[in-house]
């Protein structure tokens, strides 16, 4: 599923690059609700970003967290689980660097970083509170019932698969390695695929933020 979406996004990017300057002329005369073409910014999902449908989850403080908390902010979403000691901490450290870059340039006020657990059975709000704070005090962690997490995964369109339990009850979870960028109007506007680099993501985010700012009628 994610493969198809990335493929589709790549095709859109390629088409837009080819059309490039030719259609640029029209972008200055947008009708209300009409979206300009993709200028070829890496990771930008445009001109048809997917709207994030309503969802509910539980944050690291044990409080309800819904789609409404995405409004008015740029949100970086990463799906993982705390029993993942290798790839997940690497990605979270990269997100910390990105966030610190944005703090330094006073861009972080309208940015939130959200870690979504694909292992809600083991990742309680308490576990997530310590986990997210370890990377940055501002980071948000989401968990919830199995149904809530499944729904959230479906809404974004990501896949995760729980492995079989071993003798001591441990198990592994396969999950998407990409970082998703949701715009302040709750549209899925960007994707950063692994392997990640903090400087690339910072640059990509700034480009997407400025493009979307200029091209939202």
């Amino acid at each position: 599923m994610i493969k198809n979406r990335v493929l589709l996004a790549s095709i859109i990017v390629v088409i837009c690059v080819i059309l490039g300057a030719g259609v640029g002329y029209y972008t200055s005369n947008l009708l209300p609700g009409e979206k300009s073409t993709n200028p070829g910014i890496p990771g930008l999902l445009w001109p048809a970003p997917k709207v994030i449908l309503p969802f509910a989850a539980v944050d690291q403080k044990g409080k309800l967290f819904t789609h409404e908390q995405l409004d008015g902010k740029w949100s970086f979403l990463f799906f993982g689980y705390t029993h993942c000691p290798d790839i997940c901490p690497v990605t979270m450290s990269i997100l910390r660097q990105v966030y610190e870059n944005l703090v330094k340039s006073n861009n972080a006020e309208n940015v939130q970083v959200i870690f979504i657990s694909v292992d809600p059975e083991r990742d309680t709000p308490e576990t997530l509170a310590e986990y997210t704070a370890y990377f940055h005090k501002d980071f948000i962690g989401l968990t919830g019932s199995r149904e809530q997490i499944e729904q959230l995964a479906r809404i974004i369109g990501i896949a995760y698969v729980h492995g079989e339990k071993n003798a001591s009850g441990g198990y592994l979870v396969d999950h998407t390695a990409s970082i998703f960028l949701i715009s302040p109007v709750r549209e899925w506007t960007g994707i950063f695929s692994a392997p990640h680099d903090a400087e690339d993501i910072t640059r990509g985010f700034r480009a997407i933020e400025s493009f979307v700012g200029k091209n939202t009628p």
Partner: peptide
């Protein structure tokens, strides 16, 4: 530690696994 295993992290088609 209780146990040590050898793992390989992989990213295949955007999916991370061990």
């Amino acid at each position: 530690y209780e146990k040590i295993e050898f793992h390989l992290s992989k990213i295949t088609d955007g999916i991370a696994s061990m």
